[in-house]
């Protein structure tokens, strides 16, 4: 098959660029901890029995390390339990999320906290808030007629 010389150059350039992009993403993800959200040790949960399933039997913010907190949150149509979340600035916060009904999306505007809440599954992402203040938490997956009213605030002290 005849391939034009300029096209060969173009293709090599393109494929090398793609490889570089992928290498950057891979190195950050797998050796520097900048990973996609995923559940670690929580296993699966029954969305109808969250009230008796740890850690969702007691949603809230807990200190789990010297400067590390865990925010256990249940999303439901159309709200959050607990409704208001307060965490300290400069501390690592692990958001542990599930849904008790349909699929929701947990987004803290202006941050990289953006993950899906799926009934039966537990999702986890970590974030450190540098600046104190009020943040907007909203549901970013369509969950029914009240979806646009599903939001709350996060206070960083």
């Amino acid at each position: 098959m005849h391939i034009h010389r300029l096209e060969k150059i173009w293709m090599v350039f393109g494929v090398v660029m793609l490889a570089v992009f992928l290498a950057v993403l891979g190195v950050y993800a797998f050796s520097m901890g900048l990973q996609t959200p995923h559940s670690h040790a929580y296993g699966k949960v029954d969305p109808e029995k969250l009230a008796e399933t740890p850690p969702f039997d007691q949603p809230g913010v807990y200190q789990v390390g010297e400067n590390e907190y865990e925010a256990v949150i249940i999303m439901y149509a159309f709200g959050f339990t607990p409704n208001e979340i307060t965490v300290p600035a400069g501390a690592k916060v692990n958001f542990v999320i599930t849904s008790s009904d349909v699929v929701h999306g947990f987004e803290i505007v202006g941050t990289t906290v953006n993950l899906m809440a799926i009934p039966g599954e537990v999702n986890v992402v970590s974030y450190t808030f540098d600046k104190p203040g009020e943040y907007l938490i909203l549901c970013n997956e369509y969950c029914g007629i009240g979806h646009q009213a599903m939001y709350t605030k996060l206070v960083v002290t």
Partner: peptide, 27 residues
């Protein structure tokens, strides 16, 4: 990519294949 229940390894494998499909568009 933002979902639970799929490990990062499988997500990243498919990210690589996603980038491969850029090649025919370059052609």
């Amino acid at each position: 990519l933002m979902e639970p229940g799929i490990t990062p390894f499988w997500k990243f494998l498919q990210v690589i294949l996603t980038f491969a499909v850029v090649v025919p568009s370059l052609i």
